[in-house]
């Protein structure tokens, strides 16, 4: 683990199934992510990028290897309470499908991570309102998710992810359901959170246009981490690939 590593992934494997049916979703992945870094994990469908994100987020546990986040070896956390505490305090999740609770208002959706933390309701409402202000949704507190556009719903999901001030934001195809204009708005927001609040962001994406927002790009294929590139290096690679194809 490098001295500044915030997330250290060491020889991580994730194998599903048993002897008769075996899927190696993540194979011997090692990766260090620095504090305050914005990194994209790219790769084709089924390359294991979302699985890796779930492992980092404590939604799943690795079959082998270890994942250390902010000095805590989360791969050794087996107790549900400890894992839940880790997910609540250290990580914020943003998903492609937003996953807002339709029966709750925007404010109540954002309050959800604070409820489980036992934050008193008044303080909770204040924190949720602040998070909504950060994502530019002040005035929409009492709306229900179905009264919002896709972009607004994703911003609510981001507000919910950041309301507990997590150190690590995990985004799984955050713009996958959004148009180009809204996608840019969301990515600008991520960039702002990364720059202004120093939030470490790991984003899984198919969309190569989004990598310009990131510091580094981790390329995955068939469960393996092929390489990790700087944004510029990855840009060169893409451009060479396009030129090669055009010849």
């Amino acid at each position: 683990m490098s001295r500044e590593s915030f997330v250290s992934i060491r020889n991580v494997w994730k194998i599903y199934g048993d002897t008769s049916y075996r899927v190696e979703a993540v194979k011997d992945v090692s990766l260090d992510i620095n504090k305050g870094e914005f990194i994209a994990i790219v790769g084709p469908s089924g390359s294991g990028k979302s699985t890796l994100l779930h492992l980092i987020g404590g939604l799943d546990t690795p079959t082998r290897g270890e994942i250390i986040v902010d000095g805590e070896n989360i791969s050794s956390l087996r107790d549900d309470k400890e894992l839940s505490r880790y997910r609540n305090h250290t990580v914020g999740f943003v998903f492609q499908m937003f996953y807002l609770v339709p029966r709750l208002t925007v404010l109540q959706n954002v309050e959800l991570p604070l409820i489980v933390r036992g934050v008193p309701s008044e303080k909770r409402r204040k924190m949720a309102a602040e998070a909504l202000k950060i994502v530019g949704l002040e005035g929409k507190e009492n709306k229900y998710p179905n009264q919002l556009s896709g972009g607004e719903q994703q911003r609510v999901a981001i507000a919910r992810a950041i309301v507990g001030k997590p150190k690590l934001l995990l985004a799984d195809e955050p713009t996958g359901n959004l148009d180009a204009k809204t996608s840019k708005m969301i990515m600008d927001l991520f960039e702002r959170l990364n720059k202004e609040q120093g939030m470490t962001i790991i984003m899984v994406t198919h969309n190569l246009e989004l990598i310009w927002y990131c510091h580094r790009v981790a390329q995955m294929y068939d469960g393996r981490l092929i390489d990790v590139y700087t944004r510029e290096k990855y840009k060169q690679l893409i451009e060479s690939f396009i030129q090669y194809n055009n010849q």
């Binding site: 839940s84 999740f93 996953y99 609770v101 489980v116």
Partner: peptide, 16 residues
């Protein structure tokens, strides 16, 4: 089911 998944992702334990 999805709601349960998101609650767990947000830090709700089995007991919760």
């Amino acid at each position: 089911t999805k709601e349960i998944g998101i609650l767990k992702a947000l830090g709700y334990s089995k007991t919760d």
